[in-house]
Design a protein around this nucleic acid. Structure first.
Lengths: 202, 202
DNA sequence: TGTACATCAGTGAACGCGCGTTCACTGATGTAC
DNA sequence: TGTACATCAGTGAACGCGCGTTCACTGATGTAC
């Protein structure tokens, strides 16, 4: 039956949020329409009143997840200042983030899947990546390294995304390696970003 | 009908090679048994004479792909010396490698999928990662960075795996960003590894 | 404000399809004598 | 070396299943008068 415009928008949001979480946890091919709709409190047919295809839902879910994640990550602190590099490292390189695939940055959850998806997904991913790269670039200080801040920001992003993906991949079989990798990244990326030694990084 | 032991082993190898390539290109969920067997010159039922399940084939395909990739990558050069860091960077950060998902390092193709697979797959992945990390560690020189060679090797691995995955993900929608990312990694990782400036890295 | 009715978000049965896996069967292989 | 036969890798039809998507229908919403 028909439903308030307001309620319809609410349902659409619920679909996107459920899809966003489930796709991160199990991959796009790993989750069916039925389960997404069920978690959003709807029946499976309802999806097609909001989205033409599963791929279209996936594209919106990724874009939405990236927006939320980046907005939260780059929000100014209580002092009104933009986040420092340590803030980003704290976020990505914590067990809490590693063990919460469905609730953390979509780039770490889906990096190697993006190349297999439609161009609309590639575009969203690229924008999310660029956005965060600029925020990280702004957080960088001088470094020992003879590379521009832009270059160092891009390298830090790559290392965070790859590092979290690998830390998740090996944690079941080799938790010590997973931990060691995250600590190594804290140290190396901290220095790459120009943090003073012995500060928040150790 | 029955077949020579030799021929059976050949067929098994053909299955693993086809699976290894196809799984890297399209993901484990993205390829069916039928297509793998067809590419190996067999009918779909034949797979179950060699492997109990698709997951078991996937585990062997990953292990095999990692072994081959690592063996090739870490082989001594013509001078009999072990590869330098520049060798690893050349391999990973080339368009040839980026645009050949099915034929290059399985870690870059599947990093973010591993966390969703069985523990046997997680274990293979971890061993392949550790192996290559040690080879890269051995290739490192002194650096400006106040971190052990082990730590720098782990960070370089994370950045290469994440970097190639991202470069592949954005290349369709933003090839310039993809190129820029690979060049940034060349510079930053080269310096991380202690390469003299202006040498093979630029 | 009250009435009539077009709209359309959501329902749930049904669709065809391709999936992973099973199984009765085939027939060359390779072993026992 | 020659013969008899058990083995078992590979074939291809068949299995149940869950997938993404469609569609006739429902009935509250929200608009036109």
């Amino acid at each position: 039956m028909k439903v308030t415009k307001e309620k319809a928008t609410e349902n659409r949001t619920a679909l996107i949020m459920a899809a966003s979480r489930l796709f991160r946890e199990r991959g796009i091919d790993g989750v069916g329409i039925a389960e997404i709709c069920k978690q959003a409190g709807l029946t499976h047919g309802a999806l097609y009143a909001q989205f033409p295809t599963k791929q279209a839902l996936a594209a919106e879910a990724l874009a939405d997840g990236l927006t939320l994640s980046n907005r939260w990550l780059t929000a100014p602190g209580e002092d009104g200042k933009p986040p420092t590099l340590a803030h980003y490292l704290d976020y990505y390189l914590s067990p809490g983030s590693r063990d919460n695939m469905g609730g953390s940055c979509p780039m770490t959850a889906s990096a190697s899947e993006i190349a297999r998806q439609d161009e609309s997904i590639s575009a969203s991913f690229g924008e999310g990546f660029e956005q965060l790269a600029q925020a990280i670039e702004a957080a960088l200080g001088k470094s020992h390294i003879n590379a521009s801040e832009r270059e160092r920001a891009l390298a830090i992003m790559a290392a965070l995304i790859g590092g979290v993906a690998v830390a998740r991949g090996v944690v079941k079989a080799n938790p010590a390696l997973s931990e060691q990798l995250m600590q190594a990244l804290r140290r190396v990326l901290g220095e790459l970003g120009g943090e003073r030694e012995g500060r928040e990084v150790n």
